[in-house]
Structure formats: structure tokens, C-alpha cells
Amino acid sequence: MTFRRKTAVATAALGLLTVAVTGCGAADMTRQASPYANAAGAKTVTLSVQSWVGARANEAVAQYLLEHELGYRVDTVQVDEIPAWDALSQGRVDAILEDWGHPDQEKRYVRDKKTVTDGGELGVTGHIGWWVPKYFADAHPDVLDWKNLNRYASQLRTAESGGKGQLLGGSPSYVTNDKALVKNLNLDYQVVFAGSEAAQITQIKQFAKDRKPFLTYWYEPQWLFNEVPMVEVKLPEHTDACAEKGAADPSTVDCAYPTTPLRKYLNAQFAQKGGKAAALLRNFRWSKADQNEVAQLMAEDRLSADEAAKRWVKRHPDVWKAWLP
């Protein structure tokens, strides 16, 4: 009996204490910066890093300029595309530099909640598709039409794909319609997911080294084309009707991927109060060639992001000088 009473008193005291400590106030976790930001007196910009190298190239150059030209400290966090929107909205990340088009997220955060603002175009246009290596396309030119793909299924068979041909799937973070396409176009293929883009690149390079044929989900701009030349397989043409159908039910898609102008997005608060950093990121705009140059330095020449950015910055002052506020 006394024990019960004691427990009750203790619980009540704890409750009161909690209320007292939290000051009865509301705590909005959607406006909560990273605990590491702005520590030790530095002004910090947190950038979301995406796993593909093109995005890393953007980020490397932005980081270099922010640090060396404007005196910021830059933190990078690896977040996948869609969670990055949430993180951006919450202020845990200040900017996304390369977005491949997420209409749902854009509606939710930019138009409805207004916690994210459009940061303008990156200057690069992205395109997704299915590709085969050039050596294979040269030997079998008719593979480039999707209607002929089934004839080559047996040549594209691997341990992972079982009895069917292997279509190397994209990283889990990308928008893919591959399974729907295989089904709807009646292709004798199995989509095999490498699990990450890095895994996919490794696989592709291994195939290329052995001069083996392969079919893969891929996209440009991508530096890998410089190393492993690939040719796109023509899929049924992308139409608005098909896109609308796909938006309603992704499993019905039966046409090619769209071509997307890539955009930047900033956290709304950062866009307002971010000062020169926000201005620089908004002005950041470069070409496919620029991005590939940096990406190649990083991925192929194995330079650190900092070093690669430094080289590009040295070579192209005309481009980035215009971005400075």
C-alpha cells in the first residue's frame, strides 16, 4: 500500500519535473538544425550529398567555394533523394543541389508547407534510360530497339537472373519503372538490383573489362560514359498520356523515361537568412561538361572532392566568378 503511494508520488513528481524542465512549451522538431551545425563559432552550411557522382561534383565545387571564397564551414550528410526533402524541410540540411524531379515532394514542401524554396536550375539536363555497351551494340546493332531485346535474353543471362536475361536495375534511391516496363513490354528479363549505384558501376566495369554484354538502367550526365562507352536502347516513346497513367499507377508504365532539367532546392529559412551562402547556391549554374569534368576527376582519377574542385575552380574562374554575390 505504502509502496503504491510512493510510486504514485514519484510518478507525479517526475511528471511535474518534466513539465518544469520543458517549460510547458511546444517543441517543434521540424525546425531543428543539425547538432553539429555552427559549433565552435563557425558559420555552417549543411549540404545533402547524393550517392551519384554528378551530385558529388556539384557539392564538391559548392563546398570549395563556400569554404575558400566565403569563409563558411561546410558539412555534408549523405541522405537519399526523398528523405532529403524531409531533411531539407526540417532544416537539418540547408540545400539540395541536384534534384531529378519529385513532383509530390515539391507540392508538399514548396507549395503547401512553404518550408522549401526553389533554388533555380542547375543547368544540366538529366536523362534516364536503358543502355548497352558500345562494343555489344556495334556487333549487334538491332539490339538498340526494345522489340529485339528478347532475342538477346539468352546472351544476357547471369547467375543472379536465373533463366532470363539480366537487366541491371538502378540504385534503390532512384525512380525506376524497370519492373513495370519488363512486365508491360513482355520482355524475357529479370531486373537485378545491385543495391547501390556504386555496386552497379563496379558490375558494369567488370563486364566491360571482360567484354561481356549487359543491359543496364543508366542515366546521363554520367562520367562512366567516358570510360565505358554505352548506347541507349530505344524504348517506346515517352508521352504525356503514358506519364499521367504512370503517375496514377506506377505499375502500368510502358514507355521511356522523361528528360528532366535538374533543379536546386533550398530550405526556406536558409534561403532568407543564409546570406552570401544562400546567394551563391542560388546562382550556382553550370554545364554538363563542367559537371562531368569534376566527376571524372573524383571517380576516375581518385582525387579527393576538395582536390578535384580546386582544379576545376582554377581552370574555370569565368564560370564561378559570376556566382559570387
Partner: peptide, 15 residues
């Protein structure tokens, strides 16, 4: 963030 993030970043580029 932290060390795990560095590994994660590196793994995603097979670096």
C-alpha cells in the same frame, strides 16, 4: 553523420 556517414558515402561510390 560521423564516421558511419563517411563509410556510407564511400561504400555508395565503391571507394
Amino acid at each position: 553523420d560521423g564516421l558511419g556517414d563517411r563509410v556510407y558515402q564511400a561504400l555508395s561510390t565503391v571507394d
